[in-house]
Amino acid sequence: MRVIVLVKATEDSERGIARTPETMALMAAMGRFNDELQEAGILVSGDGLRPSSDGKRVAFDGPDRTVIDGPFPAVRELVAGFWLWNVRDLDEAVAWVKRCPNPMPGPSEIEIRPLYEMEDWV
């Protein structure tokens, strides 16, 4: 089963990365966790996203397209990073997320979403 694991954005992540001892320690801890994921054979891909102020959205309405510049509102609904994992089931994904270091300096959330597989469509 493939899942996407979404690290939800916070006010801190939307400010961007400041190279402080705290953030460098957090990055090292996340690096060790990524190594564990890779050694377990479940890590397919993953990365951090730049703040939404560096991004754009394209809104669709019939044939019309509107480009919206970041930053985007509702910070808690944004994504700051992701992993793509190949796991046995959602329980295994939850177990791995529980082992993850807190990805942010303060309170944070990680969301796990299964991807559609070809057999879901036939």
Rank of each mutant, 00 (worst) to 15 (best):
I17F: 13
P21D: 07
P51Q: 11
P114F: 03
D12E: 15
T23P: 02
M118A: 12
M118T: 12
T23E: 09
Y116R: 09
V58W: 05
C100P: 00
L37M: 14
L26C: 00
V58T: 11
E119Q: 13
L90I: 15
A93G: 10
R113W: 12
E92L: 01
A93C: 07
M30Q: 10
T23Y: 03
A80H: 06
I42Q: 03
R88N: 08
L115E: 08
I17W: 14
L84K: 05
I17Y: 13
F82N: 03
M1A: 06
R19L: 14
A29G: 05
F72Q: 08
M27Y: 12
F60T: 14
V5K: 04
I4W: 02
S108L: 04
E22M: 05
E36M: 07
S13C: 07
T10K: 07
D91L: 01
G81H: 10
A40P: 00
F72V: 05
A29E: 15
Y116G: 06
S45Q: 13
E14Q: 15
E109Y: 07
V75W: 00
G106F: 07
A29T: 04
S53A: 15
D64C: 00
F72I: 07
A25N: 11
N102F: 07
F72N: 03
D120Y: 11
F60G: 00
D64P: 00
N34Q: 09
V3I: 08
T20I: 08
V75P: 01
L115R: 03
